[in-house]
Every structure is written in C-alpha cells, then in structure tokens.
Amino acid sequence: MSTSFYVGALELTTGAVLVCAVMTLWRRQVRTIVTMLRLQGVALASVAGVLAWHERDLGLAITAALVLAVKGALVPWLLRRVIRLDPRSRETAPLINVPASLVSAAFLIVVSYVVSSKLTALAPSAASRLVPVGVATVLVGYFMLVTRRRSVSQIVGLLLVDNGIGLVTFLLTAGVPLIVELGSTLDVLLVVVVLQVLVVNAGARHGSFDLDQMRELHD
C-alpha cells in the first residue's frame, strides 16, 4: 500500500467517524440516529483496519474485527430492540434545536483543533494529525448527552464519546494492547445492556423514561 493511499484511506475513514457524529445531531428520527451510530462503528473499525494493514499488526486487526462486531452490529441491534420496546422514543426531542446544534458542533470542532494542536505537535505523523477529529467526536458526543432528552439518544451520546476516545487511542498509539481494547469494548456493551434493561423497566413502571422527568427524584 503506497503512503498516499494509506493517508487518504485514514483521512477518509476518520472523517467518516466525525461526519456520522454530526449527522446524529442533525437527524431527528431515532432509528436514523442508530443507523448513523452503526455507520460510525463501521468507520471506526475501518480506521483500525487501515492502521493494522499499514503496521502489519495482527492484534490490531483482531481489534478491528472486534470493534466491527460490537459497535457495528451488536450495539445497534440492542438499541433497535429498545426502540421497538419503547414506542415513545422515536423522536429525539432536543433541548436545543437542530440548526443551533449544528452551529455548536462546528464551534466544538474548531475548539478541538485548537486544543489538540499541542498534542499533535508532540509527534507529527499522518495518524496523529487526525487526533482533533477524535477529540471533536468526544465533544459532540458529550454535547448530545447534554442537549437530548430521550434516553436512547443519551445512550447514543455516551457511545459517541466512547467511539471518540477509541479513535484518539487508535490514532495516537496505533492501538492499545488487545486485552485492554477487549475490556473496554465489553464495558461499553455492558453499559448498553444495563441501560436497555433500565429503560425498559422504567418505561414499564413510569410510562416513560425522559431524563427531564427525573427531576422529581430530586429532594
């Protein structure tokens, strides 16, 4: 694989991760958002795959396969089940409307470029130049956590944060040891399963599971 092809492929896949993140802010349909999440998982797996190809690293390749299996298939499938079980969570019901969210996302991307310039300067390489994209994904995910009302979008926000962290890890270190990656992936899976159970149970008990209504638990 030539260097220019490697760089191009890396930039394309990394960019896809961020685009998917921004798309989740844009679309209102929760089903679409889950699709975006699946695409992002695939993109993340391809980033790992490209890096594995370039480094000729078997461990990284296995990681890529693992990411593809969990974040590209298993997690979206679980989320779809949640949506099917809780019909009220079709719409995202944002606290900040979509255009404002997109503008904020642009602002966050700029911030992440400013912020991670120092990080990039430490070891300039094709991969580490793309670190700001990962940071931006984290920030967008966090933004989603803050501004979206439905519990499913909250889960999606959390997963975006996790994907962003994963992306930064891949780009900076060319993959952590397999066992660590395995652990963190399983963690995410567990979180999703727990949230699913919680959402379904709370939905059955209270009729809905909006974080806004959680305020009643306060004092």
Binding site: L95, V111, S117, K118, L145, V146, D212, H218, D219
Partner: peptide, 23 residues
C-alpha cells in the same frame, strides 16, 4: 435544581474550560 441535563452541562462546560485553559 435536580435536572440531570443541567449537571451534565456543568460537566461539559467544565471540560471545555479545562481543555481551553490547558491548550
């Protein structure tokens, strides 16, 4: 006020501030 969103927002803003200050 007990709103989870508000607490999340505090965390988010704090994160942004820390990032900008450190950068």
């Amino acid at each position: 006020n007990g709103s989870v969103h508000r607490y999340l927002a505090f965390g988010f803003v704090a994160l942004l501030i820390v990032l900008v200050v450190l950068a």
